[in-house]
Amino acid sequence: MNLLEAVRIVAGRELKVKLRDKTFLFSTVFFLLFALGSSVLPAVLASGPSSVAVAQASPYEQKLRDAGLEVKVVADPEKVVRDGDADAAVVDQGGKPQVVAMRDAPGDVVRSLSVAPEVHLLDPDAVDELAKFLVPFMFALVFFFTSLTFGIQIAQSVVEEKQTRMVEILVAAVPVRALLIGKVAAGGILALAQVALIAVVSIVGSQFSDDAGNLLPLLAPAMSWFIPFFVLGFIMLAALWAAVGALVNRLEDVSNAGMPVQLLVMLPFFAVIFLGDNPTAMHILSYVPFSAPTAMPLRLFDGSAATWEPFVALVLLAAAAAGALLLGARIYEGSVLRTNGRTSWSAAWRDRELRGI
Rank of each mutant, 00 (worst) to 15 (best):
S114K: 09
L316N: 09
A140Y: 01
A306C: 03
A105K: 13
F133C: 07
P42I: 10
V265M: 13
L141R: 06
H120I: 14
S346K: 14
A173R: 08
V261S: 05
Y332G: 00
P77E: 10
S291A: 13
T280M: 13
D83F: 04
L316A: 15
L32P: 03
V73N: 03
V71G: 06
F34A: 15
T343I: 13
G328E: 08
A196F: 14
L247Q: 09
I152N: 12
W308P: 05
I154Q: 05
A105I: 09
L267T: 13
L267W: 08
N278W: 12
P221G: 11
V288H: 04
G151F: 07
G213S: 11
D302P: 01
W225P: 02
L192P: 00
W308D: 07
V159M: 07
G107L: 14
F208Y: 14
A246C: 04
S255V: 11
K16T: 13
I152Y: 10
G323N: 07
A131I: 04
E14D: 14
A11K: 00
Q163I: 08
V81K: 00
S335G: 13
V52W: 01
R111Y: 11
G205I: 07
A75W: 03
I9C: 06
R13C: 04
E353R: 12
L148S: 11
S39T: 15
G48K: 14
V315A: 15
I273C: 06
V29T: 10
M223Y: 10
P217L: 12
A239W: 03
P136Q: 08
I235R: 00
L134W: 11
A53N: 04
A131L: 09
I235A: 14
V10A: 10
L354Y: 05
I181D: 03
S50R: 06
D351W: 10
S344Y: 08
N2E: 09
S291P: 00
A105V: 15
V100M: 06
Q194V: 12
M102D: 14
F311W: 15
K22V: 13
F269N: 01
L326R: 14
E161I: 05
V71T: 06
L113M: 02
E309A: 13
G94Q: 09
I203G: 06
D210C: 03
A321L: 09
L215F: 10
V71Y: 07
T343S: 09
H283I: 06
R20N: 13
R65N: 04
G94C: 04
A105G: 02
A348D: 08
P268D: 01
A321R: 05
P293W: 03
S224I: 15
F226V: 01
F226P: 02
K79C: 03
I357G: 00
Y287D: 04
A55L: 04
